[in-house]
Design a protein around this nucleic acid. Sequence first.
DNA 1: GTAAGTTGCTTGCGCAAGCAACTATTCCCG
DNA 2: CGGGAATAGTTGCTTGCGCAAGCAACTTAC
Lengths: 154, 154
Amino acid sequence: MATPQLTPLEDKAWQGFLYLHDRLWREIEAELEGAGVSMAEYSVLALLAKAGRAGMRMSELAQRRVMSTGGFSRLTDRLQQRGLVERQRASDDGRGYVVVLTSDGRSLLRRAWRTHYAELRRLFLDRLDETDLADLARIWERLDPQWAQEHEVG
Amino acid sequence: MATPQLTPLEDKAWQGFLYLHDRLWREIEAELEGAGVSMAEYSVLALLAKAGRAGMRMSELAQRRVMSTGGFSRLTDRLQQRGLVERQRASDDGRGYVVVLTSDGRSLLRRAWRTHYAELRRLFLDRLDETDLADLARIWERLDPQWAQEHEVG
DNA sequence: GTAAGTTGCTTGCGCAAGCAACTATTCCCG
DNA sequence: CGGGAATAGTTGCTTGCGCAAGCAACTTAC
């Protein structure tokens, strides 16, 4: 049996996805270093900001960040040690924790956001138009309808 | 000054990019484990296969893989120790090496490719049509014209 | 031809993340 | 209810990677 091949278009679509993700991630992370957070940390803080006072469960955060619960437990440790985040026992489930942003966390996030936003504009948003963004959104929906549903504009 | 906000569409396009990359990477990597290579290793072998007998310079491979030269040096060590790859002194520059796939490397890659291909179909290609792929290719070009040029279909 | 600087790769060190084993709590079913 | 299975999170260990310093080979300027 002959090994199947990717068409040039398939290859380009896939390779570009891998390459550009890594490149943008690295560049934004390098800039964020000035604000004192890694991309991973930043994105957790951002999720928590959206969650507000209610906070979010460890496990859900880990899932959204696509990382193991073990790894996430340590990430939370670091944020907590720096006073950016609090663990609160979940009222409805004694096994779990709800993670909540502290006011220090909120203000660090505000600072980091400026950097993050500037880089995002420079590397991503400024280079794409509405159509491109809509195309991307449609593609992510096709690749993971479940994710898309949870990110419905409601 | 008010902090600028992302529009819902901008947010979705960006978050989906981050999330889907990580999810697909993880799932494919999990399957590749059966073939005995990580995604990072796999993609180096694949680059080398394309390069053929001529091989590729360490530095170029590191760049394409978006990793540090130090990290790549170790990655090459691992592949070389397993006999999948050879370092050959570069004839035109005594500091550098050219990395070349061995026949063992080639046959491992062939096996890994089947797995990789199946997963890629399942998670990515089967869910998108030609238009989607073309949209992606166009978007990668806009995000990094230089990369696109190097990946010209010739 | 030699000194000053650059580039290609390697190496010591530290950190962040995964896995798997463990604890504590909750759920499920007889 | 009682006891086993499932779930939430933590911890010990391992691994892969980045950073920065180092070495050797190349380049440029004088």
